[in-house]
Design a protein around this nucleic acid. Structure first.
Lengths: 118, 118, 118, 118
DNA sequence: GTGGTCTAGACCACC
DNA sequence: GTGGTCTAGACCACA
């Protein structure tokens, strides 16, 4: 895994895990790698992984079983998609239209470009 | 003006100014507020405004007349639009479609939402 | 039995057993489940049960007959009640009233709530 | 400030701050000590304070102004009291009554003890 | 073995 | 000056 300098490592790892949850690499209920294991795997300090896992736990994407490890929350996939959906409609879409307008692209033009890219 | 904690203040102010240039609030050739004035206005440290102005100057959006102030570059509007346009098509649009897809929104649905917001 | 993540599992199991002793589910002198049996029952590591039993033994709530198993101490009920009583009056009650006060609940209100829950 | 070994330091510091918010030592909108400052004050590592502040920010008790510091959220007091109230009714009170019952204290007796301590 | 906390020290962007 | 992130390394309780 390669890291981008614009975003903190622990968040990039979190994104990577949520992606794996969404695409089924980490199925609901499954154990995810231990803190130390993943740290060694990614060549990163265990504290950084710990921070990632704390974040994901706060988002109810993973759960902790004491002394055993972290597990994908059964509802993780729904939680993630719902969260992304609301973000899309609340922020991404309006801001996208704002930018299109600023740049002087009309709605019909915009639709054409969308079709072209699909 | 309210600031978003996710982006540095000097960039948010820069965005605000470029937008005013594009929509005509700051016409080409016109003097823009002095560093100290704008700082007081926004309740922000003058250094922050200075950084904004330096950034805008590097982008050839404003020019500095020593001892007098900063002025909107005659070609600022074109410069900004060109830059924003290429950014829009190169990054914003593709990434927007990627997100829509991820969230499970079909193209027809997407178009409906776009119409609804206009 | 469901476990709370705020408290160590072996203590939660110990609480569960003392409660069963007090309410008569485990009468004095009776044999309690073997370590392996209870471990399987609760889906927990046998070491964890062992630790629970050690703890209870130290509190003189259960006794070990080597090679046979663990048995409820004849005086277990009294031991537990005495211990819980002093803890209740020394710590639980005062701290409970402190919290109620902090949250802004008056004594009469508090009594009403107590009645309501009974 | 002295630390108790039963609870993590960063949470004890967080409790200390919420207490100061509730009792008015840190009024709404006021700046709280900088990370380094408080760390030096308490003889604790800055990372530990950072963690405390992250926690409090997630609870909407403090806000961050970029490059300036952390400030008490205007609604912090209400947020804290509300949170404590719901915890009291959802967990503390029921569990308190459960313990009283287990120990064999009747409701009238309980009320007497409450009166005595006030 | 697992997570959880803490320290010491470094480096960075931003105000 | 402010917060924010990361590393290296240590120690602990718990399963």
């Amino acid at each position: 895994m390669e890291f981008n300098n614009n975003k903190s490592i622990f968040l990039q790892i979190a994104d990577n895990i949520t992606e794996k949850v969404v695409n089924g690499t980490f199925p609901p209920g499954e154990k995810i790698p231990s803190v130390r294991e993943l740290a060694a795997d990614l060549g990163v300090n265990p504290n950084t992984i710990m921070r990632t896992y704390n974040e994901l736990q706060a988002m109810k994407i993973i759960d902790n079983k004491r002394g055993i490890g972290f597990f994908v929350n059964p509802d993780a996939r729904e939680t993630i998609l719902e969260q992304k959906k609301s973000e899309f409609f609340d922020h991404v879409l309006p801001q996208f239209l704002h930018q299109a307008k600023l740049v002087g692209i009309s709605i019909p033009e915009l639709k054409k470009h969308i079709d072209k890219l699909n």
